[in-house]
Design a protein around this nucleic acid. Structure first.
Length: 222
DNA sequence: AAGCGGATCGTCT
DNA sequence: GACGATCCGCTTG
């Protein structure tokens, strides 16, 4: 699957990005995700989500918005009613993709947290495009590659990166050969804001949404 | 600028 | 049989 090692390619980065990417960086290891979802959700801000597609090119974006879903005391979490075939990934090891289908047409991407048997995850809600923004805009059927419309919203993010449940649910995001993984490229998030999560009805008041201040690619931005 | 509803189907009651 | 961790286009003010 992995035709060339992901660590040595020169990266082409749009000049419009506000901070430079310092090379491909290091892939986030499993222990990064073996923590409480709120910690992981904060720590993921500023990291890079990379998707290698079949033609060998990489699509990527800086994570600017996340939400944490807890294993206990969180009625909004898909794991709230116990293990089912749909949510089984959440009860497995940390660092795996939980992709679900909703509203008859949308996919959303999460990463599992905490050790096996203890559910919890982080929902990826928005990216600032880095590599492949033109290809991502095409995948979204956008006329112009407006960075604010490419991956600002969990379903838009999945559409931009061609993430489906069939292709990626359960995938190990820490595996070297993964077609979807997370990187630390040295960027450090400046100001992190917290709010209630978006679009849920139960446990709606918990402050479990995290996003970068003054970031135009956050969903539902002003 | 904000609010409404349609699209569309897997999952669980 | 109902309801989404959503998005988009159309309406109204």
């Amino acid at each position: 699957m992995d035709r060339e090692e992901a660590g040595r390619r020169p990266e082409t980065v749009s000049a419009s990005v506000h901070a430079a990417v310092h090379g491909p960086g290091t892939v986030l290891p499993r222990h990064f995700f073996e923590r409480d979802p709120p910690h992981v959700a904060r720590a993921l801000l500023g990291k890079v989500l990379v998707r290698r597609i079949s033609d060998g090119t990489s699509l990527s974006g800086r994570i600017v918005e996340t939400e944490a879903y807890l294993g206990k005391g969180d009625a909004a979490a898909h794991s709230a009613s116990g293990l089912t075939s749909r949510n089984a990934v959440l009860f497995g090891p940390a660092g795996h993709a939980y992709v679900y289908f909703t509203y008859g047409m949308h996919f959303c991407l999460n990463v599992s947290c905490l050790p096996p048997g203890t559910p919890g995850c982080v929902l990826f809600r928005a990216l600032r495009p880095l590599e492949g923004s033109d290809a991502m805009a095409r995948a979204r059927n956008l006329g112009l590659p407006d960075p604010r419309l490419i991956a600002s919203g969990p379903a838009r993010l999945c559409q931009a990166l061609s993430i489906t449940r069939a292709a990626l649910n359960g995938a190990d995001l820490t595996a070297p050969a993964s077609s979807l993984y997370l990187c630390d490229d040295g960027f450090r998030a400046r100001r992190i804001r917290t709010s209630a999560r978006i679009g849920i009805t139960r446990s709606a008041a918990l402050p479990l949404r995290f996003y970068l201040e003054k970031e135009p690619c956050v969903s539902r931005a002003r």
